[in-house]
């Protein structure tokens, strides 16, 4: 018998499932926010017609893909299905993805901590980060959102916050 054992790396089904569900939810929320929030809408309009971006974990996923189809922003599922992806935001490990998506580590902090690799044209990647920040403000209660983004937009009107939140949530859950 060899003194060296070969060991297959294990699996992490629970963490994987959690991350996959949250990515799915975020993807649908971006689709919803693109309809409800004028700022998100404007950011997307500045991007190319068939623009696609993905967010997920290295080395083996899961991923979320969002893109514009004929100008309409759509959540495109868990893999890019052969579509060219212009911007890829890759979290360095499934565990880091779990830290971020379970709000133990904010997106801004995760970037600061070097856990996020951004691939693609920088101006487009920055637009995506601004969109994610706005979506986070809609999805999360203020206490958590103010940790997740660098600066909580306390100057937003009450109407924008409430109306937007209801709109984003309803559309996310219904998938419209």
């Amino acid at each position: 018998m060899s003194i060296i054992k070969d060991v297959q790396s294990g699996k992490k089904p629970l963490k994987r499932a959690y991350v996959a569900i949250f990515l799915w939810f975020t993807g649908r929320a971006i689709q919803a926010a693109a309809k409800v929030d004028s700022e998100v809408k404007k950011e997307f309009e500045k991007l190319p017609e068939d623009f696609t971006f993905s967010l997920g974990c290295l080395p083996c996923g899961p991923w979320m893909v969002v893109g514009r189809e004929k100008g309409v922003v759509k959540y495109l599922g868990g893999d890019s299905r052969g579509r060219p992806v212009q911007v890829r935001l890759a979290i360095k490990s499934l565990d880091a993805g779990f830290l971020i998506l379970s709000f133990q580590e904010s997106t801004a902090l995760a970037t600061a901590r070097n856990r996020l690799i951004t691939d693609g044209e920088i101006p487009q990647a920055l637009a995506i980060i601004r969109i994610l920040d706005i979506v986070e403000v809609y999805l999360l209660p203020k206490l958590i959102a103010s940790l997740a983004v660098k600066r909580y937009p306390s100057w937003w009107s009450f109407g924008r916050k409430l109306g937007g939140r209801i709109g984003v949530y309803t559309r996310t859950l219904l998938g419209i």
Binding site: D6, V7, S9, K11, K12, P59, C60
Partner: peptide, 8 residues
């Protein structure tokens, strides 16, 4: 875990 790698 979840990397599908084999380790010695």
């Amino acid at each position: 875990g979840d990397s599908k790698m084999t380790l010695g």
